[in-house]
Amino acid sequence: MDLEDQANVNRLAETSGTDGMVVLLGQPDANSAGLFAETVTRGDPTWAGPLAGVPLGLPVYHVLEPEIKEQMDGDLYDEHVGLMELSADVDEIIEWVAVYRD
Protein backbone atom coordinates (compact mmCIF):
# COMPACT_ATOMS: atom_id res chain seq x y z
CA MET A 1 0.00 0.00 0.00
CA ASP A 2 1.55 3.28 -1.04
CA LEU A 3 2.43 5.92 1.50
CA GLU A 4 -0.34 8.28 0.46
CA ASP A 5 -3.06 5.65 0.92
CA GLN A 6 -1.58 4.67 4.26
CA ALA A 7 -1.60 8.31 5.33
CA ASN A 8 -5.25 8.66 4.27
CA VAL A 9 -6.33 5.57 6.22
CA ASN A 10 -4.35 6.74 9.23
CA ARG A 11 -5.84 10.24 9.08
CA LEU A 12 -9.40 8.91 8.82
CA ALA A 13 -8.80 6.56 11.73
CA GLU A 14 -7.39 9.39 13.84
CA THR A 15 -10.03 11.98 13.00
CA SER A 16 -13.17 9.84 12.79
CA GLY A 17 -12.27 6.80 14.86
CA THR A 18 -12.29 3.25 13.58
CA ASP A 19 -15.86 2.40 14.67
CA GLY A 20 -17.91 1.61 11.59
CA MET A 21 -14.87 1.85 9.34
CA VAL A 22 -14.32 -0.95 6.82
CA VAL A 23 -11.52 -1.27 4.28
CA LEU A 24 -12.54 -2.62 0.89
CA LEU A 25 -9.69 -3.90 -1.27
CA GLY A 26 -9.55 -4.33 -5.05
CA GLN A 27 -6.09 -5.82 -5.61
CA PRO A 28 -6.07 -8.30 -8.50
CA ASP A 29 -3.77 -10.89 -6.91
CA ALA A 30 -3.48 -12.69 -3.60
CA ASN A 31 -0.03 -11.44 -2.61
CA SER A 32 -0.81 -7.76 -2.89
CA ALA A 33 -4.29 -8.22 -1.37
CA GLY A 34 -2.66 -9.96 1.60
CA LEU A 35 -0.05 -7.22 1.91
CA PHE A 36 -2.73 -4.51 1.92
CA ALA A 37 -4.88 -6.45 4.39
CA GLU A 38 -1.91 -6.86 6.70
CA THR A 39 -1.15 -3.14 6.50
CA VAL A 40 -4.60 -2.05 7.70
CA THR A 41 -4.81 -4.70 10.42
CA ARG A 42 -1.37 -5.35 11.89
CA GLY A 43 0.48 -2.35 10.42
CA ASP A 44 2.76 -1.80 7.46
CA PRO A 45 4.96 -4.91 7.21
CA THR A 46 7.49 -2.99 5.11
CA TRP A 47 8.00 -0.43 7.88
CA ALA A 48 8.12 2.31 5.27
CA GLY A 49 4.79 4.09 5.65
CA PRO A 50 2.64 5.94 8.20
CA LEU A 51 1.03 2.66 9.31
CA ALA A 52 4.37 1.11 10.34
CA GLY A 53 3.85 -0.10 13.91
CA VAL A 54 0.21 1.05 13.83
CA PRO A 55 -2.04 -2.02 14.23
CA LEU A 56 -5.41 -0.46 13.36
CA GLY A 57 -7.17 -3.84 13.32
CA LEU A 58 -9.69 -2.61 10.76
CA PRO A 59 -12.19 -5.04 9.29
CA VAL A 60 -10.92 -5.64 5.77
CA TYR A 61 -12.71 -7.31 2.84
CA HIS A 62 -11.99 -7.81 -0.83
CA VAL A 63 -14.50 -6.66 -3.41
CA LEU A 64 -14.54 -10.23 -4.77
CA GLU A 65 -15.89 -11.69 -1.51
CA PRO A 66 -19.51 -12.95 -1.75
CA GLU A 67 -20.73 -10.87 1.22
CA ILE A 68 -19.57 -7.74 -0.58
CA LYS A 69 -20.85 -8.75 -4.00
CA GLU A 70 -24.36 -9.46 -2.73
CA GLN A 71 -24.68 -5.92 -1.37
CA MET A 72 -23.93 -4.32 -4.72
CA ASP A 73 -25.99 -3.54 -7.79
CA GLY A 74 -25.49 -6.47 -10.18
CA ASP A 75 -25.05 -4.47 -13.37
CA LEU A 76 -22.63 -2.05 -11.73
CA TYR A 77 -20.69 -4.97 -10.25
CA ASP A 78 -20.42 -6.68 -13.63
CA GLU A 79 -19.26 -3.46 -15.26
CA HIS A 80 -16.53 -2.71 -12.76
CA VAL A 81 -15.59 -6.03 -11.19
CA GLY A 82 -16.87 -8.72 -13.57
CA LEU A 83 -13.67 -8.94 -15.57
CA MET A 84 -11.51 -9.29 -12.46
CA GLU A 85 -13.90 -11.88 -11.06
CA LEU A 86 -13.25 -13.97 -14.18
CA SER A 87 -9.52 -13.42 -14.40
CA ALA A 88 -8.29 -13.38 -10.79
CA ASP A 89 -7.57 -16.25 -8.44
CA VAL A 90 -10.65 -15.44 -6.38
CA ASP A 91 -10.39 -18.22 -3.78
CA GLU A 92 -6.74 -17.48 -3.09
CA ILE A 93 -7.39 -13.76 -2.69
CA ILE A 94 -10.28 -14.35 -0.28
CA GLU A 95 -8.18 -16.80 1.70
CA TRP A 96 -5.31 -14.34 2.15
CA VAL A 97 -7.50 -11.41 3.14
CA ALA A 98 -9.30 -13.61 5.66
CA VAL A 99 -5.95 -14.54 7.25
CA TYR A 100 -5.49 -10.95 8.37
CA ARG A 101 -9.15 -10.09 9.01
CA ASP A 102 -9.65 -13.04 11.28
Partner: peptide
Protein backbone atom coordinates in the same frame (compact mmCIF):
# COMPACT_ATOMS: atom_id res chain seq x y z
CA UNK B 1 3.42 -6.67 -3.72
CA UNK B 2 2.70 -5.47 -7.26
CA UNK B 3 2.21 -9.01 -8.51
CA UNK B 4 2.93 -10.42 -11.96
CA UNK B 5 1.71 -7.50 -14.08
CA UNK B 6 1.83 -9.20 -17.53
CA UNK B 7 0.12 -12.33 -16.24
CA UNK B 8 -2.70 -10.28 -14.70
CA UNK B 9 -3.12 -8.38 -17.95
CA UNK B 10 -3.18 -11.57 -20.03
CA UNK B 11 -5.72 -13.12 -17.68
CA UNK B 12 -7.85 -10.00 -18.11
CA UNK B 13 -7.56 -10.22 -21.91
CA UNK B 14 -8.58 -13.88 -21.74
Amino acid sequence: GSGDVPRMNYRTLA
